[in-house]
Amino acid sequence: MARKKTITREHILSAVYEVISTEGFSGFTARNIANKMKTSTQPIYLEFKNMDELRTVFIDRVTADIRSEVYDRRFTDDCIVDLSINYVKFASDHSVLFKSLFVDDHESGNQLNEFTYDLFNEKVASDEKYSKLSHKIKEAIFINCWIMSVGLASLAASKRAKPQNEEIEKIIKNLIDLSMKHPDVTLTR
């Protein structure tokens, strides 16, 4: 009789989440993940072809969770301000995970940058205030607000600052205004 599988894909992904949330991607090894589950590495390789596939599945899962549980919260009447507030709040509440995902250099960095860019574009496309703006202005708003949000979030994650929602709202609204008036004043993406 075949043995019943006791370590599932979900168990493995939960262990990956715990490892990344406490150690960052430097701890993303089969051995560390297996140790977290108190098992050998065999179940990992039975569920996933390799560590690259596991990383991709994890990033897909965590971005879906972040999208639904973090970025959909409303604080103001402005979708861009809300994205920034949510980003900073996520960094403050989950500092190691935030740094691991959005600050540290790792193989999935570009995938996470694209996730952020796509999410911004989805929010802007469904908002009357922003949807009809030119591509150039939307790009300027994205880049300027993204840079500021990453800075504020990094400060919040490292506990060097505690940006309040009202402060973030003022800063981001000023950047939006600046970007609309001067869309050439930005870094390239």
Rank of each mutant, 00 (worst) to 15 (best):
A2T: 15
A2P: 15
R3P: 13
K4A: 10
K4F: 04
T6N: 13
I7G: 03
R9I: 12
R9E: 15
E10P: 04
E10G: 04
I12S: 02
I12V: 09
I12D: 02
L13S: 01
L13R: 02
S14Q: 15
V16P: 06
Y17E: 15
Y17I: 05
S21Q: 02
F25G: 08
F28W: 11
T29I: 08
N35A: 08
K36E: 15
T39W: 00
T41D: 11
Q42E: 13
P43V: 08
L46V: 06
E53I: 10
L54V: 12
F58H: 09
F58T: 06
D60E: 15
R67W: 05
R67A: 10
S68F: 05
D72Q: 12
R73L: 04
D77Q: 05
I80W: 01
L83H: 07
L83N: 08
I85K: 01
N86E: 07
D93F: 00
S95Q: 12
S95C: 10
V96S: 01
S100A: 15
S100N: 11
L101A: 04
L101V: 01
D104M: 11
D105C: 10
S108P: 08
G109M: 04
G109Q: 09
G109R: 12
N113Y: 09
F115D: 02
E122V: 07
E122W: 00
E122N: 06
A125S: 14
D127R: 00
S131V: 08
K132Y: 12
K132E: 11
L133P: 12
K136L: 14
K138L: 15
A140S: 14
I141D: 05
F142D: 07
I147C: 09
V150L: 11
V150D: 13
S154H: 10
A156H: 12
K159H: 11
A161W: 03
K162T: 13
I172G: 05
I176N: 08
S179G: 14
M180K: 14
H182Q: 14
D184F: 11
T188V: 07
R189P: 08
